[in-house]
């Protein structure tokens, strides 16, 4: 799946889970910049992403997926048939 297809779906999911306007989600959106990115919302986000893209993230990825950019990259990597 092309990153251009992944990004809008990640944006919508992040907006829904963090309860923020979709327009506010994009490159640079992260746990550092968003007070709504609590530990509880992080767990909800990971389980929602796994369901949306039919992937299972590793323990390392669960810890690392703390920004829009990292999530788009990680999902793209997971869905890339070459990896």
């Amino acid at each position: 799946m092309d990153p251009a297809e992944i990004a809008p779906r990640v944006r919508d999911l992040l907006a829904q889970v963090m309860d923020v306007p979709p327009a506010s989600v994009g490159p640079g959106f992260s746990s550092e910049s968003t007070a709504a990115w609590t530990s509880l919302n992080h767990l909800m986000l990971i389980s929602q992403l796994e369901d949306e893209f039919e992937v299972i993230f590793s323990n390392q990825e669960i810890r690392d997926l703390i920004s829009f950019d990292r999530i788009v990259e990680a999902v793209g990597r997971r869905l890339d048939p070459r990896t």
Partner: peptide, 24 residues
């Protein structure tokens, strides 16, 4: 130490809550 809002899952639908329950 962790502090959470009791209403923290209030806006999520039933399927999302159950999915997170199964995952975590």
């Amino acid at each position: 130490l962790d502090v959470e809002q009791v209403s923290g899952l209030g806006r999520f639908d039933e399927a999302s809550v159950l999915r997170a329950g199964r995952r975590w």
